[in-house]
C-alpha cells in the first residue's frame, strides 16, 4: 500500500506539467476565496477597524451580528428571500421536468415546434423582458407582492431544455416496464423517470436556488415597500440609508451565504453520474 502511494507521489513529482496546473489552480482558488474570507473577517470587525486591511480582525466582535439580527427588517428580508427562492426552485423542479419529460418521451403533433418556441425564449435578454413583465404585473395588481417577484421565474426555458436532454437518456424500457406493471403516466414520471435524473434535478435546483437567492434587478423593480424586499435589495438599502456601514453589509452578506452553502452541501451528493446505467445490461 505504502509502495503504491510513494510510487504515485514519485509519478506526480516526475510531472512538471502537473505542478504548474496545481500552482495555477491554487492561485485561482486563493483569488476566489479571498473576498469571501475578507467578508467574514470584516463582519467580525467594529467600525473603527473596517479600513484596516487585515484579513482577520485584531479585536474580533460579534456586535455586528447581534445588531443585524436584532434588526427585524433583516430577518424579514432573509425570510422573504428564502421563501421566494424555495418556492421558485420547487416550481422549476416540478414543472421544468414535467414539460421536459413530455417533450422527450411522448410523440405528438407539434412537439418539435413547442420545443423550438420554448428554446427561442432563451435568446431574449432579461433586460428586454423587464418592461413587459412590469406592465403585466402592474395591470394584474402584482406590484409589491411575493407573486410579483416570483412569477417570471416559476418555469424556465433553460430548465425545460436541461431536463428534456436528460430524460432523453432514460431508456424507454424502464418506462414500458412500468406501464406493463400498471402505473399511469404520471406515476411513471414520478416513480421511475424522475429518480433516474436526480443528478440533473439537483443541478437544476442548485442553479435555480442560487439564481433566485442572489436576484437583484427584478425584485428591486417590482417591490416598493420594505416588507417585500428580498435580501439583496434590502442589503443595498441598508448601505444607502445609513452612510455606508461596511461591517453591517458584510455581516448581512455573510449571513446570506449560509442558505446557499446548505443547498449546495445537501444537493451535491445527488450529483453522482452513472447511477442510471446500473439497472441495464452489465
Amino acid at each position: 500500500m505504502s509502495t503504491i502511494i510513494s510510487e504515485g507521489l514519485m509519478q506526480a513529482k516526475a510531472h512538471p506539467g502537473r505542478i504548474i496546473i496545481w500552482a495555477v489552480l491554487l492561485i485561482g482558488g486563493l483569488i476566489m476565496i479571498t473576498p469571501i474570507l475578507f467578508m467574514f473577517g470584516t463582519s467580525f470587525k467594529d467600525a473603527s477597524q473596517v479600513y484596516d486591511m487585515r484579513l482577520f480582525p485584531e479585536y474580533p466582535t460579534l456586535d455586528n451580528y447581534i445588531q443585524v439580527l436584532s434588526d427585524g427588517r433583516f430577518l424579514r428580508w432573509f425570510g422573504n428571500s428564502l421563501g421566494i427562492a424555495t418556492t421558485v426552485t420547487l416550481s422549476n423542479v416540478f414543472f421544468d421536468s414535467l414539460v421536459g419529460y413530455t417533450l422527450a418521451k411522448f410523440d405528438f403533433r407539434g412537439r418539435y415546434l413547442i420545443f423550438l418556441a420554448i428554446l427561442s425564449t432563451l435568446m431574449i435578454p432579461t433586460e428586454m423582458l423587464v418592461i413587459p413583465w412590469y406592465l403585466m404585473a402592474s395591470k394584474l395588481g402584482w406590484i409589491d407582492t411575493y407573486w410579483g417577484v416570483m412569477f417570471p421565474g416559476m418555469m424556465t426555458a433553460f430548465g425545460t431544455f436541461l431536463m428534456k436532454q436528460f430524460f432523453e437518456t432514460v431508456p424507454n424500457d424502464f418506462l414500458e416496464a412500468a406501464r406493463i406493471d400498471g402505473l399511469n403516466e404520471f406515476q411513471i414520471w414520478w416513480k421511475i423517470a424522475l429518480p433516474l435524473v436526480t443528478p440533473a434535478l439537483s443541478a437544476l435546483a442548485i442553479f435555480t436556488f442560487l439564481g433566485n437567492w442572489t436576484a437583484f434587478f427584478w425584485p428591486l423593480i417590482v417591490t416598493t415597500s420594505q416588507e417585500f424586499y428580498t435580501l439583496p435589495v434590502g442589503l443595498t438599502s441598508f448601505a444607502i440609508e445609513q452612510s455606508i456601514q461596511w461591517e453591517k453589509i458584510m455581516t448581512g452578506a455573510a449571513l446570506a451565504t449560509i442558505p446557499t452553502l446548505i443547498v449546495f452541501l445537501v444537493l451535491q451528493r445527488f450529483i453522482v453520474r452513472g447511477i442510471m446505467l446500473a439497472g441495464l445490461k452489465g
Binding site: 431508456p171 416496464a177 421511475i192 433516474l196 442510471m276 446500473a278 441495464l280
Partner: peptide, 13 residues
C-alpha cells in the same frame, strides 16, 4: 401480461 426486456429494465434506484 408480464414482460421481460432485453435490457432487464430493473429500476436502478
Amino acid at each position: 401480461i408480464a414482460m421481460v426486456f432485453q435490457n432487464y429494465a430493473i429500476y436502478p434506484h
